[in-house]
């Protein structure tokens, strides 16, 4: 499998203290993506201009001819050049995850995120199983745009799903994420019907979905199909900006929702 990063002591990806694994590759292209380096399934070269001291050691190639061999990043002394993406086995991943076992307690554990971890389903299922066998609490963070069969594969080893709903309006969904939300909503419905634990998470993006109408529709949909254990509204933040630039992409920036706004939207779900 290919992953982009492993972060320890994460407090916002499920209950307790968690290690979050970012899988690389995602079928969606959300305009606000804060992990732009996880979209492609290929390794990518990131170049942080502000860190470069112009030493020339990297002897880097042109963007067009770059085959992401990683040689420049390996030699770059400042970390200005960095390769996003590394292949690893389920075993290797597990070894990293178990490093913080002493801190997980009963609630905490591992969260598989991304990117879309559910699109690398075989290795995901394998590492989930390993964690489960060792009693580590497991969370899968997904946008749900995968065949339902994928959920069936991981369900036995997953304690909790973090399920993103970005927009209810189908046209807007297509426009802002690049895909339709039909499959996403259907999958969620089915997932509820099999009775697994779900937290629904909604990123709040000003001018995209930060309106009462959108939230009401999502709420109505949820009322219809099941009860998530929790609904989290996550305010947009521009943390993807520097990574986006480092990838040579033009970041799409939004405003940061203010706390009043967040509060009023949250109330809809209370």
């Amino acid at each position: 499998m290919i992953i982009s990063d492993i972060q320890r002591f994460c407090m916002h990806d499920g209950p307790g203290v968690r290690t979050t694994v970012f899988f690389k590759g995602c079928p969606l292209r959300c305009k606000w993506c804060h992990n732009p380096e996880t979209q492609s399934y290929q390794k990518e070269l990131l170049f942080y201009k502000e860190k470069c001291i112009g030493c020339g050691i990297c002897k880097a190639c042109d963007k067009e001819t770059c085959i992401v061999c990683g040689a420049c990043a390996k030699n770059c002394p400042t970390g200005a050049r960095e390769v996003a993406g590394r292949e690893c086995t389920a075993r290797e991943l597990y070894d990293q995850i178990q490093k913080d076992v002493a801190f997980y307690g009963k609630k905490g554990g591992v969260t598989f995120s991304g990117g879309e971890c559910m699109t690398q389903i075989e290795p995901l299922a394998e590492v989930l199983k390993m964690c489960k066998e060792k009693g580590i609490h497991t969370v899968v963070d997904t946008a749900g745009y995968v065949p339902f069969g994928n959920f069936e594969k991981v369900m036995p080893y997953t304690d909790l799903f973090l399920y993103d709903i970005k927009l209810f309006n189908p046209e807007k969904h297509q426009k802002y994420t690049g895909v339709s939300n039909k499959l996403i909503l259907e999958n969620l419905k089915k997932l509820f019907s099999v009775g697994v634990k779900i937290w629904v998470r909604i990123p709040i993006i000003p001018s995209v979905n930060d309106n009462i109408d959108e939230m009401r529709k999502i709420k109505e949909f949820l009322d219809e199909c099941g009860t998530p254990e929790k609904i989290e509204l996550l305010p947009y933040h521009p943390m993807g900006e520097s990574k986006s630039q480092a990838l040579g992409k033009t970041p799409h920036l939004f405003e940061i929702p203010d706390s009043e706004k967040m509060k009023s939207l949250k109330e809809i779900f209370e």
Binding site: M11, P15, G16, V17, A102, F103, G105, K107, G108
Partner: peptide, 16 residues
């Protein structure tokens, strides 16, 4: 350490 999970985070660090 915001929110409810913050209390959990701190006690987990202490326990570890």
């Amino acid at each position: 350490v915001n929110g409810e999970n913050g209390v959990e985070a701190i006690s987990s660090l202490i326990k570890g």
